[in-house]
Design a protein around this nucleic acid. Structure first.
Lengths: 356, 356
DNA sequence: TTGAAAGCGCTACCAA
DNA sequence: TTGGTAGCGCTTTCAA
């Protein structure tokens, strides 16, 4: 008794189906692949056998034989559970669903080693494409993969030492417009609270911040800048420090959603003991409109970022030739209230005032 | 020239490495798999060739030969970008990382057809285990897969027509405790805003709501119940309707995070035109503490839900025998302010009052 | 310590 | 319309 005919041991193969339907292996293959040249009665017998045995085609064997990567995309993001990144994952999934691609996502947690390990694993699994929010500072090891046909797209930050399609936000322009918005509302002491300064987006947004100050003829006051906040807690701490200064800022520009949440935490903790600073955050978030006051932000669509990244991957897969593209996703300032608070600070939020 | 020796065409195989290192295929295999019986010098030569050619083991061929599923888990959730579900994904990823499992996640969007399609695809890819937040009402088609060794765990809702490990929240107890909390603060007219009533969690939470009312000697007032809200917008609409009634509720129990956001939207839209109802939501969310007033919730740890689901999968993979387990994750009421507002309603939130 | 040959489940190619 | 045979890249088994 051959192994594949033992009932219950292992899954049925095409050979098993062939035996059950009393046809050849090749005929089963034809039925499974919907090839035309099979008699209706033969096909029926095969399908019956398939149903009876619970046969399911082995995609690994198939891919192996066809010399193609399995329909799988590897996505490396900072954290699968961070709404910004999971929105990207969603966009990618939507865009490649019709092509039959599955998305394997892994969290790098901003750890270059972990990132590389994930990418290596993805390559061993022969994914068709790699989508990476890069953390490490050398991606040259992916060049060989690309040469062998693996598609590669960097998202949100540029990769290093390798030419590949990249999709970025308009970090500089967005930050400059956001800070300009605060300046337009009369602020002259605008603080910048940011992530680690070596992160690409932080650096770009800091440049935008400085550019806005410069064009308003304002100097750069180091006392108003706090970077290195890698999480909500440290951002809250930085905010408290900023506001405890003798001459505190009247407005705060929060460099990303994590930072914005930290600032909100600090402000919630203060209660109404001092004039509330204006707040403008980079990255929109679902509850922004329902905060008190509603939070103004520099917004863009992260799902669209994912869709476009997937689009780039698909293009590479369809036409491997072509030089690397770079897409810049536009941002816009969404005024909701927190960014329009006046410098004086009445101590009342717009909504609270309505209640009084 | 054999296909595998054409430079640039296809990836190098073990055969290519063997040729380059002037050893046999099998020796390369030994080196790649860290088998002991290889001379140091031979191993060195092989490793050099591997590095030169950029060789990477093909995991598909490997899995095929070894008759094992590839180290991959399929996760079907409602929406990859919903924080609750992406937190589950994160928990799963964390727990199986050490075992070398990758997680492929797909969004069912609460569509039974899509769910089934995803599960079929996962099976064809021979995933080792399936984690499913079930939407459909018949999962008997997975029985054959389970019999062949695929692990299966249902998350958040029970599956149908099949016995499998399941991890659920204490929906009934959580909802009852939450509503009880509102009753304890003097409310007698507590509204229930919920998702589609046929969703398991909605039904269970509604039962908890009714149980709490019953034990307080309160009747069930249909005018205070709004179900069928499948998104934030419809929940906001339902909230507005509830509050526009002649005898409006003084407190609202929101059945899940989507609903809570809808209620918050409706309340934000009202401004301070009428007494603010107390609010208690099922599902915690990151900004809950920074809302005005801070939002009280029935909380639990969704990442832990993912971890435990993954734990169940691992157990099944290790010891296929054993009857289905069921885990109930406990919940707790987190009082932050919105659930402790008095029935009278002063029209001022606690924070706003501090400012006045 | 090393290698040759068979075969995993499937598809490509050629023959009937 | 059907079937046989070879072989994808790897591991297993057995022999040298």
């Amino acid at each position: 008794m051959s192994p594949s005919s033992r009932p219950g041991a292992g899954r049925p193969t095409m050979t098993d189906v062939a035996r059950a339907a009393r046809v050849s292996l090749k005929t089963v293959s034809r039925v499974v692949n919907d090839e035309a040249s099979v008699t209706a009665s033969t096909a029926l017998a095969v399908r019956r056998a398939i149903a009876e045995l619970g046969y399911r085609r082995n995609e690994h064997a198939r891919a192996l034989r066809q010399h193609r990567a399995l329909g799988m995309l590897g996505l490396v993001i900072k954290d699968v559970s961070n709404p910004f990144y999971s929105a990207i994952a969603r966009g990618v999934e939507e865009r490649v669903r019709d092509r039959g691609f599955l998305v394997v996502a892994g969290s790098s947690d901003e750890d270059a080693e972990r990132e590389r390990a994930l990418l290596e694993i993805f390559c061993e699994r022969r994914v068709a494409g790699l989508l990476v929010v890069p953390t490490g500072h050398d991606h040259s090891f992916l060049a060989a993969e690309m040469a062998m046909g693996t598609a590669l797209v960097f998202i949100d930050r540029p990769g290093h030492n390798i030419a590949a399609d990249t999709i970025l936000l308009d970090n500089f322009g967005g930050a400059r417009a956001g800070v300009q918005h605060l300046l337009d509302h009369g602020h002259r002491r605008v603080a910048f609270v940011g992530d680690l300064p070596e992160v690409f987006t932080t650096a770009e947004r800091a440049k935008g911040y400085r550019a806005a100050l410069r064009s308003a003829g304002l100097g750069y006051d180091r006392g108003l800048v706090r970077v290195g906040c890698h999480n909500t807690t440290s951002a809250a701490e930085a905010t408290r420090e900023l506001l405890a200064q003798p001459d505190p800022p009247t407005a705060i520009f929060a460099c990303n959603n994590r930072i914005t949440f930290g600032v909100l935490a600090a402000l919630a903790g203060m209660g109404g003991r001092q004039p509330r600073p204006a707040l403008l955050g980079f990255d929109d978030f679902e509850l922004a409109a329902y905060m008190t006051p509603p939070v103004s932000v520099v917004a863009y669509d992260p799902v669209e970022v994912g869709r476009q990244a997937a689009e780039l991957i698909c293009r590479q897969l369809d036409r491997p030739e072509g030089r690397p593209r770079r897409i810049i996703v536009p941002t816009s300032v969404v005024a909701r209230g927190s960014g329009e608070l006046p410098p004086a600070g009445t101590g009342l939020y717009p909504m609270a005032r309505a209640h009084g």
